[in-house]
C-alpha cells in the first residue's frame, strides 16, 4: 500500500510522520503551504475538505485526524508494537491522545486560529493573550497525569508518546514557563534520541 502524507512543518503532522518511521514503513510527503493558504484551496479540498493537515492518502481513500491516522499506522504495522496489549493500558494510551487532541491542541489553536470560534479582533487578542496560561496549565496536567513514568505508559513506548512529543514541541513558543516541568523536559530529551524523531527532523517536518 502506498502512503502519501500531506503535511505542513511544525503542525500535528509531524506526529503522524513519526509513526511510520517507528514502523520502518515507507511513505511519501506532499507539502501543503499554509503561508500561501494552500490548505484552503480547491485542490487540497479534494484531499481534505476540512482544509487541515494531516491527511494520509492510502489505497483505500484519504484518512484525516491525527489520532485516527496514528492508530491506522499501528493497525497496519502490528509488528512495530506501537500500542500496548491490555485493554486498560490501551485505554490509558487513548485517554492521553484524546486529551492532547481535544484539550491541549485546542488550547494551542486559540493563539492563531481564534477565528474558528470568534469574529471580533478584541476577542481574538483576548484568546491569544490567554494561551501562555492555558498551555502552562496543560503542561502541568500532562506532567502530573499523562506521563505514568518516563513514557506515557510508564516504560512502554506507544503512539501516545509520539503525540505528546509533538504537542510539547509547541510549549516553548506558547508558554514561557515550560522549564518548570522537568519530567516533561526529560521525556522530550529522550524522544529526541529516537531515530524516528531524527528522521522527521531531518525531513524538515519539525520546527
Amino acid at each position: 500500500m502506498t502512503l502519501r502524507l500531506f503535511c505542513t512543518p511544525g503542525t500535528a503532522v509531524s506526529a503522524v510522520a513519526i509513526a511510520p518511521e517507528e514502523a520502518e514503513r515507507p511513505y511519501d510527503t506532499v507539502l501543503v503551504n499554509f503561508a500561501r493558504g494552500q490548505q484552503a484551496g480547491a485542490a487540497y479540498a479534494r484531499i481534505n475538505p476540512k482544509g487541515r493537515v494531516p491527511a494520509l492518502a492510502t489505497d483505500n481513500g484519504v484518512l484525516t485526524e491525527a489520532t485516527a491516522i496514528l492508530e491506522f499506522v499501528a493497525d497496519t504495522n502490528p509488528a512495530a508494537l506501537l500500542r500496548p496489549e491490555s485493554p486498560l493500558a490501551m485505554a490509558r494510551m487513548r485517554e492521553a491522545m484524546s486529551d492532547l487532541a481535544s484539550t491541549v491542541h485546542v488550547n494551542h489553536d486559540h493563539k492563531k486560529r481564534g477565528r474558528r470560534w470568534a469574529d471580533h479582533p478584541g476577542s481574538l487578542e483576548d484568546m491569544t493573550a490567554m494561551v501562555p496560561q492555558t498551555m502552562a496549565a496543560s503542561a502541568a496536567h500532562l506532567q502530573a497525569h499523562c506521563l505514568h513514568g518516563p513514557d506515557v505508559l510508564g516504560s512502554n513506548f506507544s503512539l501516545a508518546d509520539i503525540h505528546l512529543f509533538v504537542i510539547c514541541t509547541w510549549l516553548e513558543r506558547d508558554s514561557p514557563r515550560v522549564g518548570e516541568f522537568p519530567a516533561l523536559a526529560a521525556f522530550m530529551a529522550r524522544m529526541e534520541t529516537r531515530a524516528s524523531v531524527a528522521a522527521v527532523r531531518a525531513a524538515g517536518l519539525l520546527l
Binding site: N107, A118, D119, S123, D126, M127, M130
Partner: peptide, 15 residues
C-alpha cells in the same frame, strides 16, 4: 477556558 473578557464570551457564543 480560552478567554477572560465578557465581550469575548458573547462573541464566541454568538458564533
Amino acid at each position: 477556558r480560552w478567554a477572560t473578557k465578557p465581550a469575548s464570551y458573547k462573541d464566541m457564543k454568538a458564533k
